[in-house]
Design a protein around this nucleic acid. Structure first.
Length: 587
DNA sequence: GCCGTTTTCGGCCCGACTGTTTTCAGTCG
């Protein structure tokens, strides 16, 4: 049984968690947590990386981590972790997940009250045992019960568009106040993370008291968690937490930068400042000289970066995944914008499971300023989606041909299909049928439980088919609902590059697939990206904006994205891929 | 536990809010 990346990540994360509960040195804990995080992004076969010893060359993996990972990769277990597990009941890891309950409390509850589970914690809060502990009180017990209640009733995470909509609603109310000078949504929403726990708003004002009072009194407030002078925190109806930070307008760029994060980006920025004899926080950038601190004024985030010897780093890239090193020597490449988008290449009509006619889709796309559109209904194996058999597909081809006679001037309509990749990697139509189309998208809609090896082979075989032009939603994940199927995406990316097949960034907010973390490397290997909402109705075109944001996060520029090319170049890309079918003996 | 253009030892990012204290620990981001 090969060692999966996820097993190693889970291992390191679990160790970090136990060390926290034990009350270990926080830097030791961070070493394990950072190791897990680094592995998430590291390319290549993790088992190979460990067994070859190359893992030791990766920053953050020192002697201790290398030894432990080697033991785990060789024997399948780790004595160090077993020993940690033996010290505490495993269910304490669950208790750690309760908001406002951290390692110190977990440890005390366990040692003093023998609490090992969330249920036992609730009981102890209710019967007064928690309140009776030194340093605790009735409020603490009540707060813990509330946290558990919220954790159980609300989803822990919110999808990007839901979270942003909730944040926008609050932001709009606050912007309407004359006391608010500047306000922005910061945090993970500004960085385009696929899902988020809360929203962070940053605003500048001369009158924090009034603004805060208004914030905690908004009609959408369900619970006020904190109400301070510079920071307050509410839970809005629907369950999402929204934090507001208020600063003086001169401090706004520092606060905006700080609360945009991400955490690791900030840590790296502060270390950098220290090395340069400066100090940076949400309250400013200071030159330090002994106890003397002199503020270095910055009018915006760009000047903050400049003061630290860096080119500007767009928010989407701030994850400490190489962007700081990049910005030391070069300007950030021009990332794709919404204005670059010229046409959508994956949508469904009412012939399969969409709700619109070809004409309506064309009119809508044209109305949005698009210059072309690709029609791609499901193929025959997708019974659940009313997939088209050969006869219906050819009939649709005729309809597209007819529709082309009355297209808006300069608009191009591509005839395609979203063709199922069958269990064995074969495509869902004969080559002669596929060859009649302008382009073919291939994707998996069945047998999600195949082994990683079989699924990878299956998809790669489809990419090697001469008609395949694009791989749609490469992992099949449905965020917060269904995990990705097991697949070696790095191998798939290599195959896509070798065969010049585009990979989709499916910007349906439930999919956002292939994940942003892979695009930087995929682009470097020459893979072309195609941003598509996989539209089933007209409103789905709105998802394109999300796709642009997430592809910016993946470091992509307009030239890397098929949909930003003009129709002629797109057609050329499809044609280059498509090869004429071998003459059939029957004809 | 990791790391090194101050360092192989001694650092490691910084601050707000809450609850329980009466100066601070815990938690969060």
């Amino acid at each position: 049984m090969p060692l999966a990346r996820k097993d190693v990540i889970d291992l390191l994360e679990e160790i970090a968690m136990w060390l926290e509960i034990k009350g270990e040195n926080s830097f030791k804990i961070r070493a394990y947590a950072n190791g897990a995080r680094t592995l998430q992004m590291l390319e290549g076969d993790v088992e190979e990386l460990i067994l070859s010893g190359d893992i030791g060359k990766v920053k953050g993996f020192g002697k201790a981590l290398v030894e432990k990972l080697t033991e785990f990769a060789t024997t399948g277990k780790l004595d160090y972790l077993e020993a940690l597990r033996a010290e505490f009941p495993e269910s304490l890891l669950e208790v750690m997940k309760v908001p406002n309950v951290g390692p110190k409390k977990v440890q005390r509850f366990y040692k003093e009250l023998e609490i090992t589970s969330i249920d036992e914690l609730v009981a102890a809060c209710e019967d007064g045992r928690i309140a009776a502990m030194s340093g605790m009180g009735a409020k603490t017990a009540g707060k813990i019960i509330d946290s558990i209640e919220r954790m159980r009733t609300n989803a822990a995470f919110f999808l990007f568009p839901d979270a942003r909509a909730a944040a926008e609603a609050v932001a709009e109310e606050l912007r309407a106040l004359r006391q608010v000078k500047r306000l922005e949504i910061a945090g993970s929403l500004r960085r385009y993370k696929t899902h988020t726990k809360d929203a962070d708003l940053i605003a500048s004002t001369d009158d924090p008291e009034t603004v805060m009072a208004h914030f905690v009194g908004l009609p959408q407030v369900d619970i006020v968690q904190e109400h301070g002078q510079t920071k307050s925190s509410i839970v809005v109806k629907g369950g999402m937490q929204v934090d507001l930070r208020l600063v003086d307008d001169a401090m706004y760029p520092f606060a905006l930068h700080h609360f945009t994060g991400g955490k690791e980006h900030n840590v790296a920025m502060r270390s950098r400042a220290l090395k340069m004899g400066m100090k940076v926080s949400e309250w400013g950038l200071f030159r330090t000289d002994g106890d003397e601190e002199t503020l270095i004024p910055c009018t915006d985030e760009a000047s903050l970066y400049e003061a630290l010897g860096l080119h500007y780093i767009p928010p989407e890239l701030r994850e400490n995944l190489g962007e700081i090193e990049f910005a030391e020597s070069a300007e950030c490449p021009p990332l794709v914008t919404e204005d670059d988008y010229r046409g959508m290449l994956h949508c469904h009509t009412h012939a399969s499971d969409g709700s619109e006619s070809i004409e309506n889709l064309v009119a809508h796309a044209h109305g949005l300023g698009h210059r072309y559109l690709g029609i791609t209904d499901h193929s025959k194996s997708s019974f659940q989606a009313n997939g088209l058999d050969e006869e219906r597909l050819l009939d649709q081809l005729g309809q597209i041909e007819a529709a082309r006679k009355s297209l808006p001037k300069g608009f191009t309509l591509f005839a395609g299909v979203e063709c199922d990749i069958r269990v064995d990697g074969e495509l869902d139509y004969e080559d002669e049928i596929l060859a009649q189309l302008d382009f073919v998208i291939v994707s998996v809609h069945s047998a999600f439980t195949q082994s990683r090896e079989d699924m990878t082979k299956r998809v790669i075989k489809a990419l090697e088919h001469p008609s395949a032009c694009m791989l749609a939603h490469p992992t099949g994940r449905v965020l917060l609902q269904r995990d990705a199927y097991a697949i070696d995406l790095h191998a798939v990316i290599d195959a896509a590059a070798a065969n010049n097949v585009a990979i989709e960034f499916n910007c349906n907010p439930l999919r956002l697939d292939m994940d942003w973390t892979f695009w930087h490397k995929a682009r470097d290997k020459g893979v072309v990206c195609s941003i598509n909402p996989d539209a089933h109705r007209l409103s789905n075109f709105d998802f394109i904006e999300l796709g642009i944001g997430f592809c910016r996060k993946g470091w992509l520029a307009a030239e890397d994205i098929l949909n930003c090319w003009d129709a002629k170049k797109v057609a050329k890309f499809f044609k280059a891929r498509k090869q004429p079918p071998k003459p059939s003996a029957a004809k």
